[in-house]
Write a protein that binds this DNA or RNA. Structure first.
Lengths: 335, 335
DNA sequence: GTGAAAGCGCTAACAC
DNA sequence: GTGTTAGCGCTTTCAC
């Protein structure tokens, strides 16, 4: 239905094989011939059919991005990183959301995807996920974030150190009674949630302070969840003087609750978040900043490299976090 | 390299044509045969090759999402809407960012994409964009947001009414001296920026108040741009008593500037944004809420419908906005 | 260095 | 209702 290699070959007066070779820049083609073919192709406005190429080569020419969610703040930044890294490569990006991990898919989607892509970038699906297993079973190159890679290249954040850093900061400001707003229960070791808890515990131990189990509440990683969690913390008879929320979004919710109670972060209760969203600057929220764009670009780079030179080795990169101190942690409320 | 129709056909004892028909649920296949084929395919773990199917049918089995940015707050919500609508359809989503419209691409990407997809969803590329023209020239189904559709299905927001609503709200609170933080200069009529300005002007005229050109400043749609814009407004000899920012992000920046000046939104100066990001609730920022998810799902639905039943008619949907009044607009600062 | 020919895996006519 | 056959547009041996 469009211009094909045949057309180009005919007009250029060469065989389709030569066209194919010339277009892909093979050394073996006579420079003069190549130039001619390129010229003709250009004039004819020739665009190759990826489907046909895929069929013959077995390479799909694209990579799949698997993510459980698409509307979380960090996602877009990772995506931006992935995107910018992939531009330039001639691979397309196929987006696939798995949605809520709890409800199963009628048709496991990865089978279908598998034939459409040459490799996967997988964003933080919990390690026990059936989805993840299925993807790994495919035996294709996988670059993943979040869960510690079973046998793939992976990018992770040193969440343990990051969580410790948050606690250290609060302790340094003089706090002894800390509230923790975590996301969800940790299922597996090695997973974000688990690492964060360990980081918190370690830091507390090092500081020789004990954590009151009543001050450790879940916030479901949402703003409203964070708001409710803060309510719980305030409702107790002995509220914390400082709070660490495992995500900025939950911290935002906590701020809202504080405001409703006439409390000011950094004056009445210190509050620190985790993620480092741009908004936190505006809200004057101290936080642990994660390098989302870099996570994304590293994920993409790892996969591209693996696709290009399929050595069996995998790359495991751990990226650091950074403490951003703002007005929400001043120590004013410390004993 | 995998199980093919031939394998299934051989094992099931039928022809490849029958397998193909059975797998796609054609009525013409004997129910018993179909069941058998399905069973065999299942047992053999057969997954069709999209490339081969695409080659024969001419249908790519996917749609392309074209967007100039990926890290803007509204994007992810539109994406979520698109995604949820597309799930269920067996079409894949191919993401493509055009990046900054100012720097041109060495290879126009849409030509390549065009052979990979059956249609496009295009997010707010300015109407004069060469990219947009090229996509339209392809003659493929296009569902677009932002620019008024030349000859495509499109989804737009009634930005004129939305902007008017914001001004009305401020006027209702008693304000007469209004500051405007817009994004960029409006190039074309029909485009968001233009509509917003018209909406503002109309509302001002209706209220019989005149807008001071010195109080109309650009914020570049970024938080920092909004902050700078607010600086400019405050620097004047006669600052506004209320400000309307054309995006929430710019309003956030404006809030930061205000805080730095010891000013409180809703007390010293009223402030209203535009977009309705979740964060605005936390920041207690009044705003005009846009239905991003619905925009996304409508975009997807329009395209899917057009792909399914290629009647030449296009659908143009205009979605309404909603005023969310919060603590940043109280009228306290009105004369 | 280049061409001829054989497919890649599937679907669409056309017979039966 | 089902099988046969001929491609879709490209790449890739294998000759030359």
């Amino acid at each position: 239905m469009g211009v094909t290699v045949k057309d180009v070959a005919r007009v250029a007066g060469v065989s389709t094989a030569t066209v194919s070779r010339a277009l892909r820049g093979f050394e073996s083609v006579d420079p003069a011939v190549r130039a001619h073919v390129l010229d003709v192709a250009q004039r004819l406005d020739y665009v190759g059919s990826p489907a046909a190429a895929a069929l013959t080569t077995g390479k799909a020419g694209s990579v799949g991005l698997i993510t459980p969610f698409v509307d979380r703040l960090g996602f877009q930044r990772m995506l931006a990183g992935i995107e910018s890294e992939m531009r330039g490569s001639d691979l397309d990006l196929l987006l696939h959301c798995t949605g809520d991990p709890s409800e199963p898919h009628p048709v496991p989607p990865h089978k279908r995807l598998a034939r459409r892509v040459d490799g996967f970038i997988v964003l933080s699906i919990s390690a026990d996920s059936r989805d993840l297993e299925q993807i790994l079973r495919l035996g294709m190159p996988v670059s993943m974030f979040g869960s510690r890679g079973a046998d793939t290249s992976s990018v992770r954040v040193d969440d343990r150190a990051g969580a410790s850093r948050a606690i250290d900061h609060l302790v340094d400001l003089g706090h002894r009674r800390l509230g923790i707003i975590y996301g969800r229960e940790a299922v597996d070791a090695g997973v974000l949630e688990h690492e964060m808890h360990v980081g918190v515990r370690d830091a507390a131990e090092r500081a020789r302070i004990s954590l009151d189990q009543n001050l450790i509440v879940a916030g479901d990683y949402t703003t409203s969840g964070g708001a409710i969690a803060m309510e719980q913390l305030l409702a107790g008879e002995d509220p914390p003087t400082a709070v660490f929320a495992f995500s900025d979004e939950m911290a935002y919710g906590a701020m809202r609750t504080m405001r409703e109670h006439g409390l000011v972060p950094g004056r009445d209760i210190d509050l620190i978040g985790y993620d480092g969203h741009p908004m936190s600057d505006v809200l004057d929220l101290s936080t642990i900043e994660l390098p989302f764009e870099e996570i994304g670009s590293t994920l993409a780079r790892n996969l591209l490299d693996e696709l290009q030179t399929p050595t069996g080795t995998h790359r495991v990169v751990t990226l650091p976090t950074r403490l951003a101190v703002r007005g929400s942690t001043t120590g004013a409320s410390a004993p």
